[in-house]
């Protein structure tokens, strides 16, 4: 049964991470364009730092760092009269109440917490990339469009909401769809973060003898399980390609771009 659930886990991760990363990306891009200097610096630093650090190292690093940060904060709040240092040599010690999740919590809470950490990590990383794409897209919207809106007396906020945001998507989509493909291909890394995902189950179920399943002895099937995973991902890629093509066609409609012009000519 586990493997079916884990396919759901992967799809759930995609479903939660994509909008979250988009939100982070939009926030980062808006911050980087902001008129307030500290906010602008924050946005730019966010994009630069996350994009500069090599790939998986970030995933491995961030999950532990996030976990320890949460526990440390809870420790400060919940146990104010704790007098020992938190970092004792090579151990990270916080008081019992600050443990996240609590030591006596049910198994599913532990799993959900692990999954949640993974989602946040994925969102932060992909958010930085999305921020970069959107930052570029916002600058790609023709200046004349914004100036016209300003000439009509719209405030900066109105310009952003009515002109900039509706128009930026067509410029952002190629980059974002690329990012979506990368995100799909990054999901097996959940395994490294300790979530029982499809990679975990393929190894478990395919192996000749596992602690979980001893009832059905069979030879080493792991190769076939991974072949199935390979095909699963290929299909996912193919399907998203088709969907994204349609979205692109829809977004291009009526835009002042080469694609929009081609559509207009085809219709005439």
């Amino acid at each position: 049964m586990g493997i079916y659930w884990s396919v759901g886990t992967v799809l759930l991760l995609l479903a939660i991470t994509a909008p979250l990363a988009l939100l982070f990306g939009y926030g980062g891009a808006s911050a980087a364009r902001s008129q307030i200097a500290p906010l602008r610096w924050f946005g730019k630093t966010y994009m630069a730092v996350v994009r500069g650090v090599p790939d998986i190292a970030f995933f491995l690093f961030f999950v532990i760092a996030l976990d320890q940060a949460i526990e440390y904060l809870r420790h400060k709040v919940l146990c104010p009269d704790w007098d020992m240092p938190v970092r004792q040599g090579s151990d990270f010690v916080v008081c019992q109440q600050a443990k996240m999740p609590l030591g006596n919590a049910a198994q599913w809470i532990h799993e959900t917490y692990g999954f949640g950490l993974a989602v946040v990590t994925f969102s932060i990383v992909f958010g930085a990339f999305a921020a970069n794409v959107m930052f570029g897209a916002m600058r790609a919207v023709p200046r004349g469009q914004l100036e016209t809106a300003e000439a009509y007396g719209m405030s900066r906020r109105q310009v952003t909401r009515r002109i900039l945001v509706p128009q930026m998507w067509v410029y952002a989509l190629p980059g974002l769809s690329n990012l979506w493909m990368v995100l799909i291909k990054a999901t097996p890394l959940l395994f490294l973060l300790g979530v029982e995902d499809i990679v975990y189950w393929a190894r478990e179920l395919g192996g000749t003898k596992t602690p979980n399943f001893t009832d059905y002895p069979h030879s080493d099937w792991r190769m076939w399980y991974f072949l199935a995973l390979l095909i699963f991902y290929l299909l996912l890629t193919k399907a998203s390609e088709a969907v994204l093509d349609r979205v692109m066609a829809r977004l291009t409609r009526g835009q002042a771009t080469a694609g929009g012009e081609a559509q207009r000519k085809a219709a005439v």
Binding site: I184, K185, A186, T187, P188, L189, F191, V199, A202, R203, G206, D220, R222, M223, F226, L227, L229, L230, Y233, L234, T237, K238
Partner: peptide
Amino acid sequence: GSPLFIQFFFAYFLFLS
């Protein structure tokens, strides 16, 4: 179209078989 990570796994078990 497929993750490198899965490719590694698949290749390893393929070679093993």
